[in-house]
Design a protein around this nucleic acid. Structure first.
Lengths: 253, 253
RNA sequence: UGACACCGUGUGGA
DNA sequence: TCCACACGGTGTCA
């Protein structure tokens, strides 16, 4: 679960994409006017490589800490995505608590199919946003499952997953109460749990590490930021075709 | 046993520290956007007063940034006015982690008085170097204060300042532990905090922006580089007379 | 005590 | 543009 970075070299010894900094550094070290940049996912890097270095938009949060593994090994960005339908959900909240939004990325047969953003909440938390993401991922999953498709949901919030797929059983059996105090975000949890119950034998809900360069998670993350930026209260589709590098360049300010 | 509280007023009628709530309340009552908070000790309050209120409420990033920048400049300019004794400290580490050194520049009555360099550590970090700088600045400050001189320390490491003047209070109260893991550079922090406690009511510790052309900071920076170059493990004075522009022309961080 | 997430700050280097 | 060193807070649960 180490963070894999992808380095685009536009101008250097051998332009291309590299998976470790030492490797990338060789291409740019000592090259006058070298252009290069790191990205969290290969998809992002490939889009950027084709777009060229022109934009200075920069992913502002590129340098969140997580240690990179020693060598340029291939991290399993693929391991968690091998279903007929894969739905990634994410939430953002800036500051936390504060304005919050949700994003979804849907893959069908391993290809990006739809992007959704919205559910803006001017007074949310990171967890309301993540629960909204999971709830709506479940709703999308329901359609897929009813169409006979093998479906998985990928969520980076252990809290949201456990609320809906684990703890909710116990809470419900005690009439949605908890010894230690009121259950936060209860309505959202109840809604999501109800949908989950309908699908429980037919879907997989997986935890994916955040900020690990997993494409679907990164795209859902950007959508959640877009939701905040646009204060979009509905859940609306992002119109195709998808220009990934443009989407990833979205920023507030 | 009623606890004595200390009230910091950052924005109000008359910013400062108050020792009773009625007194503090007068300063903030009816003042739009007033910022204030109570602390358990005067030392904590003073550190907090200098650090600023810390929490942001704004959601508009651009305008917020500009505004806080402007007001931050104002605070700094006001607070950085000359003292009878001004001590600048800095640390360098090249590469980081790696060989590290520390430098100090001391002004007395607005005139450069001494330059110190050393504390070479062949396996340091930027932060060990900065903490060494702050520790030894505090030691120098102690002499000055005991001589009845109004004294300030200027440090460009927010990390070092906060470790010693702010976070150390909480860490000490929890037996020098932290929720999120072990405290790095603990011995250095403990030493510096102990000296700080002796002086807390009689000195000012200020943050200065790095690489901003502030003479004292620049000179301390050159001294820290010199410490690495000479691998000087003691803290030794740079012999006068001082040719400031020649010193500033030395290799810098 | 642990886990996941969401935000924020500064410095040291190439 | 890249790397690394260090830290704070809140949201939530078992």
């Amino acid at each position: 679960m180490a963070k894999q970075k992808f380095y685009v070299v536009w101008r250097g010894m051998a332009p291309g994409i590299y998976t470790s900094w030492p490797e990338a550094e060789k291409q740019v070290k000592g090259v006058a006017g070298a252009r290069y940049k790191s990205f969290a996912s290969r998809a992002e890097a490939e889009a950027a490589l084709q777009s060229g270095p022109g934009k200075s938009t920069g992913t502002k949060k590129a340098s969140k800490d997580r240690k990179s593994q020693a060598s340029g090994d291939k991290v399993t960005a693929k391991a968690s995505r091998w279903h007929e339908v894969d739905i990634y959900c994410d939430g953002a909240c800036d500051p936390n608590p504060g304005p919050a939004g949700t994003g979804l990325a849907v893959y069908r047969d391993h290809a990006l199919s739809e992007l959704w953003y919205g559910l803006f909440n001017p007074a949310g938390t990171n967890n309301t946003a993540e629960l909204q993401g999971l709830l709506h991922a479940l709703k999308l999953a329901k359609s897929a499952v009813e169409g006979g498709r093998q479906t998985a949901i990928h969520c980076d919030s252990r809290y949201a997953i456990d609320c809906v797929t684990k703890w909710a059983f116990g809470w419900k059996s005690r009439d949605w109460t908890r010894k230690t105090g009121p259950i936060m975000n209860l309505a959202l949890i109840q809604d999501a749990h109800a949908v989950y119950l309908e699908l429980v034998d037919r879907i997989t809900v997986l935890h994916v590490p955040g900020h690990a360069g997993i494409e679907g998670n990164e795209l859902a993350d950007r959508m959640s930021m877009l939701a905040i930026q646009k204060a979009e209260t509905d859940l609306v589709p992002c119109p195709p075709p998808f220009d990934i590098s443009a989407l990833l360049a979205l920023e507030r300010g």
